[in-house]
Design a protein around this nucleic acid. Sequence first.
DNA 1: AGAATACTGAACCATTCGGTTCAGTGTCTA
DNA 2: TAGACACTGAACCGAATGGTTCAGTATTCT
Lengths: 117, 117
Amino acid sequence: MVQYSKARLDASFAALSDATRRGVLEQLGRADASITDLAEKFHMTLTGMKKHVGVLEQAGLVTTEKVGRVRTCKLGVRRLEEEAAWIEAYRQLWDARFDELDKIVEELKRKEKDDGE
Amino acid sequence: MVQYSKARLDASFAALSDATRRGVLEQLGRADASITDLAEKFHMTLTGMKKHVGVLEQAGLVTTEKVGRVRTCKLGVRRLEEEAAWIEAYRQLWDARFDELDKIVEELKRKEKDDGE
DNA sequence: AGAATACTGAACCATTCGGTTCAGTGTCTA
DNA sequence: TAGACACTGAACCGAATGGTTCAGTATTCT
């Protein structure tokens, strides 16, 4: 399996493990938004939303820029490439594992039949 | 965007956000293992490992069966389909969003040029 | 200038997390 | 049957999470 950045996967999967933060990403996929916009949309205080945005920013999934008194949030540069790759590799492992188990079962069946005859 | 099970995504992304647990999944992709096996491999107490396995089991990523005194862990039925689907949908959103921004930039460039001439 | 807006940081709170130890319980094995 | 083995559950621990309030600061509007 390819070498993944442990800390990076930790951070982004953790970021994705909260429904509010996934919602923020979907929202930013539609349009950039200020902290106030997001806080209202998700029924939360400004401070609370700022923390969520901070988590997403740390994970590289969101970038923000403050102009005047408003901080605008937009999707970050990361497209979840590594996360998608990890999951894809896992799925292949899973398939291989179950194929293997199937073969073992087949083998057992064959032997059983041989023994029986 | 398709309807995903909020709680399920919460649980599985959270399960994946820990390097030890991702390691356990990779390990179980190679061979089934007892709690003792896994605890040794990841330098951790039995109790500690049992908790990790519990988290993975709750997320449906691992199943276990106790025979005699040993509990054998294997990959569960879930293949991270929903998680892969969420990420894929996000990536499409991301692409669409950046295409859109590109268009806006193009538009601005065009206007600028018109104004200049 | 004064009021309203938008954010920020510190402090606090309850809960969860990742890990441990310790004291069992049940299962093998000699 | 005694000892070793594999796990289990409860209790504890410090740190991180997800949220809040409160008291600022900086910016914008009137």
